[in-house]
């Protein structure tokens, strides 16, 4: 319930009106959107029950290792209503050919694979919000200072998921486990997303915001 309350309103893409449509414009618009989502995510993280109880260093460690998984869940959740597009925002939907043209084809296949998996499962909002928080709590960050505090943070979210599933879906006793069993694919998808944007950056194809680059840097 706390995650439902603290869920930020979805952001809209902000394409430059004066710039003619092009693959570069798609990338610029996408990178700007993702950077703003990242900013919002950092504020959102503080509302996850238990997060601010962690040390500042551990808060950074979890965000540095889990941020792309949380961004991926945002996109995948928004894309649930579509069979073949990626909906990064209400006003930014990309088809496979648009992704390919922008150098995002690998990202497209990875995100669509995860999106269709959650579509088959009938993922709902409560579940995706809990998974987003878990992506941070379970991000296997290195050099954690307060391992016990992080473990309690994880256990709290795991308990919330189990309580939710047992009360809302009593006829599906394996549901919570099945959701947890999607986390490895989420991790793999996020790593492919990191590689894709890192490649775009090293190729100099699109300027990226400092925060986005700092967080990309933390993942490599």
């Amino acid at each position: 319930s706390q995650l439902l309350v603290s869920e930020p309103a979805p952001l809209r893409a902000a394409p430059e009106p004066a710039t003619p449509d092009s693959d570069l414009k798609t990338l610029l618009t996408l990178c700007d959107l993702l950077n703003r989502e990242l900013l919002v995510m950092i504020g959102w993280a503080k509302h996850i029950p238990g997060f601010t109880g962690l040390s500042l260093v551990d808060q950074m460690a979890l965000l540095q290792s889990g941020w792309m998984e949380t961004l991926v869940l945002n996109v995948v959740w928004r894309s649930q209503g579509s069979a073949d597009e990626l909906q990064f925002a209400e006003n930014l939907r990309l088809s496979e050919s648009q992704c390919r043209a922008a150098g995002l084809h690998d990202l497209y296949t990875a995100l669509r694979h995860l999106s269709s998996k959650y579509q088959q499962m009938g993922l709902n909002q409560e579940e995706v919000l809990t998974l987003k928080a878990m992506a941070l709590a379970n991000s296997d960050a290195e050099n954690v200072e307060g391992a016990e505090a992080v473990q309690r943070f994880q256990d709290g979210l795991h308990e919330a998921l189990q309580d939710y599933e047992s009360s809302q879906r009593p006829s599906e006793p394996h549901r919570a486990g099945r959701l947890l069993m999607t986390l490895p694919l989420l991790r793999q998808t996020a790593l492919r997303a990191v590689r894709c944007f890192s490649r775009l950056h090293t190729d100099g194809r699109v300027p990226m915001h400092k925060l986005f680059l700092e967080m990309l840097d933390a993942k490599i």
Partner: peptide, 15 residues
């Protein structure tokens, strides 16, 4: 080194 990061500032002064 971590202290100079944007993330550190954002977490510290609460957006």
């Amino acid at each position: 080194q971590e202290k100079h990061k944007i993330l550190h500032k954002l977490l510290q002064n609460g957006n």
